[in-house]
Design a protein around this nucleic acid. Structure first.
Lengths: 136, 136
DNA sequence: GTTTAAATCGTAATGATTATCAATTAACTT
DNA sequence: AAGTTAATTGATAATCATTACGATTTAAAC
């Protein structure tokens, strides 16, 4: 997804176009990996020295809410990445050194639902951690 | 696993037997679910009004390190549960209301390694969240 | 240009976790 | 059974990510 597509999606949902949001989206479009919230803050501060924590966190959660970003917890910190909606539901290998990800086109839930009769599945998480070929 | 077995395991590794550790282990043996660190703190404070944060966190991490406990992150807080070493490697369904878990005797990694040539897998996480039959 | 709700700023509060160091204690030694 | 020693704990403060909030600014609809 590119920045304009994302902003268009926001507009449809009634959100305004702001310089801060553009800048946040740019960062994610440029980097195909999970990024910690504080990293985003640092980057944005280059262009907007006075950005508020509030602005960053509110937008990251909002963007996750409208499925533009995906969120996960790595090392006790919330991380975000651009949702890869070009292909369907999938999971990720995440490099513990550089943070880059590799898509895993396989979802364990497909073959598991028969074992969960009576259980109401709301969500699931499947992540693989390790070293990518470059960092290995 | 029971408290004595766990303490025996600790002794073998050179850790001392303390009242606080016994008490921590008792809590986990009694409850088959993930418990937040702060809940443990609260419980222990009933018996040891002056327990230190340090004592709780240090022991929880140490017990995780020697494979007596398992750790995960739920809702931004670290949670721990007794490792279920009676059966082999497996995963969990976790009830988002009561916290109870159900074992999933299936590991997606078994059928996925062929897709990760060149990648060094260190770890993985597969958790299913939802409502258990009692809370549904 | 006016209007208005949304968004941001500036700053403070919260809350879990980590750190420090002196005092205490478990368990080994003689 | 007392002495020794290193591990463990207690008390407290610091850290750090995240959340909260009122005042100000801004996007965009009219």
């Amino acid at each position: 997804m590119n920045v304009e597509t994302a902003l268009q999606k926001l507009k449809e949902k009634g959100y305004k176009r702001t310089k801060q949001r553009e800048r946040i989206l740019e960062i994610f479009v440029k980097q195909d990996q999970y990024i910690a919230a504080k990293e985003i803050l640092k980057e944005i501060q280059n262009d907007f020295p006075g950005v508020s924590y509030d602005t960053i966190y509110r937008n990251l959660y909002m963007l996750t809410d409208v499925d533009i970003l995906e969120a996960t917890e790595l090392g006790g910190e919330k991380h975000f990445r651009l949702g890869c909606d070009t292909h369907g539901h999938h999971h990720h290998f995440i490099c513990t050194t550089c943070g880059k990800t590799k898509s895993i086109e396989f979802c364990p839930m497909d073959s598991i639902n028969e074992n969960l009769n009576g259980y109401d599945v709301e969500n699931h998480k499947f992540e693989i951690y390790g070293k990518c070929p470059q960092c290995h």
